[in-house]
Every structure is written in structure tokens, then in C-alpha cells.
Design a protein around this nucleic acid. Structure first.
Lengths: 96, 96
DNA sequence: TAAACTAGTTTATTTTATAAACCAAACTCC
DNA sequence: GGAGTTTGGTTTATAAAATAAACTAGTTTA
């Protein structure tokens, strides 16, 4: 009946991040921070979890003398998101 | 952009419970336990949270000598669920 | 009448999410 | 050129949540 929901994605902030990254393909830390209104600390932690899950790739570099963190969704991340949406349907489609 | 998700409903088990209760209008503890495969302890806790949030009504009685707990969704619970689904769309509809 | 089962609740443990504090380097501007 | 501020984060601490384990109270069965 109900499918188990991927706990990595069943988190408001991480879901938002993956949602953004699927639509833009690549985004920097500060952009993600603005779009999600997350605190930097929380964002840092959740980005790491998504990275460890293999759902995003994270590249650190310097831009205009400042550190810059760039995130990109992986094929695995796309699949996980699609599966999550499918699984979620089992909770939302209410058959009368 | 992203709407905050009702934390009461953004939980796999509680979402499943509300989902069931919207479709059946009334269900007993043991039925909910079977449908969700939850442990009794977890179910007990989550039912109480939904009750405290005003999303369900809980009635305790005896049936065939055994205690029986019956849960029913409230109008507020229906509204909260509908809002949750709407808010969730902001995470799932990806505009390319 | 002892063992096992029903239908839960309560308490404890683990896991998560979040916030607060911190860090290093770069700018600002007097 | 040094104090204070800002950028772009990370790490650590705290709060909240989910879950599991242990317990209660009573019932049925052998």
C-alpha cells in the first residue's frame, strides 16, 4: 500500500535542494541559501548528506578570491527524486 | 517559492494515517497498525500527536472484552492534508 | 493456573533537524 | 596598517522527532 519514502529526500530542506538542482542543473551555495532561506550551517550539513548519498556532486573552488561551492545533481539523484515522487503518490492518491 | 510543510504531516507514518483516515472516515488501532506496518508503540505516539494537533478524534471503548481505539479524521485534519498536498507541489513541480 | 496473546501505553534510545558558535580569508576605511 | 565588517562557509551543540524496547492491564487457551 504505502511505499517507504527515501529518508534522504523526505526532509524539507533536502527536498528543496534537489528540486532546485533538478531544474537548474548547477547552483552555488549562496544561491541555494537564498532560494531556500536556510541558515548557512543547516545548508552546509544537508548538502553534505546529499553528497554522501551520491545525489549531488559538490565542487569547491575560488571565485574572485572567495571560496565557492558548486552543487550539481547526479543521475542517481534524479532517479531518487523521481522514485520519491512516485512513492509519495501512494500517500496522496486517495481512492474513495 | 517553497512553502513550509506542516511538520505534523511531514512524517511518513502520520501522513499515512491521515491518508487512510480521509478515505475510510473511521478506523481502529489494529487496522491502522496493519495498514501501516507500524509498531504499536510508534502508532500510539503518532496517533496522539495527530489528536493533539486536532487532526483526528480518538475514541476509546471496549469491544468483545478488549480495549478498542477508534480514530476519525476531523474537518481540520482534512484541511491540513489538502494544504500539505498543495504546499508539496511547490517542491515537486519543476519548471524548466 | 500458567503460558501466551490482545491492545495498547510509557519510557528510553537513536536519529534528525536546526541553531549557535566558530574559522579563515578578504575587504573597508580612517 | 590595524580594527572592524563581510563573505563563504564548517563544526559543534542543542532541540525535536522517530523509533524501539519495555511495560501494563486484562483475556483467552490449554
Amino acid at each position: 500500500m504505502f511505499k517507504d519514502l527515501d529518508p534522504i529526500l523526505h526532509s524539507q530542506l533536502r527536498l528543496a535542494l534537489v528540486s532546485i538542482l533538478i531544474s537548474v542543473k548547477e547552483a552555488e551555495f549562496t544561491y541555494l541559501r537564498e532560494k531556500t532561506s536556510a541558515t548557512a550551517g543547516n545548508l552546509s550539513v544537508q548538502i553534505n548528506k546529499l553528497k554522501e548519498a551520491g545525489y549531488i556532486d559538490v565542487a569547491k573552488q575560488f571565485k574572485d578570491n572567495y571560496p565557492q561551492t558548486i552543487c550539481k545533481i547526479t543521475p542517481q539523484g534524479v532517479l531518487a527524486f523521481e522514485q520519491y515522487v512516485k512513492d509519495l503518490q501512494t500517500y496522496l492518491d486517495i481512492k474513495k
